[in-house]
């Protein structure tokens, strides 16, 4: 009943239509480059060079994708190796990040040890600068740890990404009632047991979010200083080499963009509601 009155008061039909038109237009503009990438990737050669260029493809073909795979398998390092590298780094890095960040978040949010508040403050500060400012010292640290040309040089820093810990800690703090943990403790459950059988199932949306963020970041990781040998490089690096070919490779280049964007977008579609739920607790409280 209330809701009906509320709608009548503050939601004019005209306003809704205007608002919908505005975001519809903007949403379309946001999608243009992606649509263009998809349409280009499906164009046969003669259509790529039609003047002026068109969005709609009259004879769609998968030739560009075919060419992409041929081009990649012609390279000195087999294409499958780049895929393996990227998948290995993404899966291991994501798994470790979710596990370690959740454990630490649980400790900071619920176990609250001596000094935990200060540590959380440092983590919030670390969100305020990007990791690029620490490239030089990190290169030295990785060298000293003997991790050059080792997957671990990408995986280990990914374990300790601050954003994931921050989101997880905020989520745990507002989603897990202390009384539940106390009850479990009285029943004699150990902290480890509580963590894996009570806490982790409750914070499912949060760790799905961490999985997605971490996976996206690692999946898109390109060339970096720590990996120099060609056979350890990532898919994104290999693909950016193709795109560097410029307009002459417009078709294959677009196909490669499509290949790279499909997975993150699909993952997001299936997990959108979980991410939004996690973000609901993400605010900075003073």
């Amino acid at each position: 009943m209330n809701k009906v009155i509320h709608k009548k008061l503050n939601r004019s039909l005209g306003g809704s239509v205007v608002l919908f038109l505005i975001i519809g237009v903007f949403a379309f503009f946001m999608m243009i480059p992606l649509i263009y990438a998809i349409s280009n990737s499906l164009k046969p050669l003669n259509e790529l060079w039609i003047f002026p260029p068109r969005i709609i493809v009259s004879n769609p073909t998968l030739k560009n994708f075919n060419d992409l795979f041929n081009l990649m398998s012609d390279s000195w390092v087999p294409f499958s190796r780049y895929i393996f590298n990227t998948l290995f780094i993404s899966l291991c890095g994501t798994f470790g990040h979710v596990l370690l960040a959740s454990m630490c978040a649980y400790s900071l949010a619920k176990l609250r040890f001596y000094g935990s508040k200060t540590i959380f403050k440092i983590i919030v500060y670390s969100l305020m600068f990007s990791s690029s400012v620490t490239t030089i010292p990190n290169f030295l640290i990785i060298t000293k740890l003997n991790l050059i040309n080792n997957y671990l040089s990408i995986i280990l820093p990914a374990f300790a990404a601050p954003l994931g810990l921050y989101l997880m800690k905020q989520f745990m703090e507002s989603m897990i009632p202390d009384t539940l943990l106390e009850a479990a403790k009285i029943d004699g459950a150990s902290e480890w047991r509580i963590f894996f059988t009570i806490v982790m199932p409750i914070v499912r949306p949060a760790w799905l979010t961490l999985i997605i963020f971490s996976f996206q970041g690692l999946w898109n990781s390109g060339s970096n200083l720590y990996i120099q040998s060609e056979e350890l490089k990532t898919l994104n690096y290999a693909i950016s080499q193709i795109l560097a070919g410029g307009i002459a490779r417009a078709g294959v280049g677009s196909a490669s963009v499509v290949v790279m964007m499909v997975l993150p977008i699909l993952v997001f579609i299936f997990s959108q509601s979980n991410i939004v739920e996690t973000m609901s607790t993400s605010g900075i409280k003073e």
């Binding site: 949403a27 003047f51 693909i239 963009v257 993150p264």
Partner: peptide, 25 residues
Amino acid sequence: LCFYAPSISGNAYLIWTLLFNGDSY
């Protein structure tokens, strides 16, 4: 999804170099 997709699409921003390419194509 429409609004968020660009930021997670890896190097899809390079498509802009085709859209705004320097020649008449």
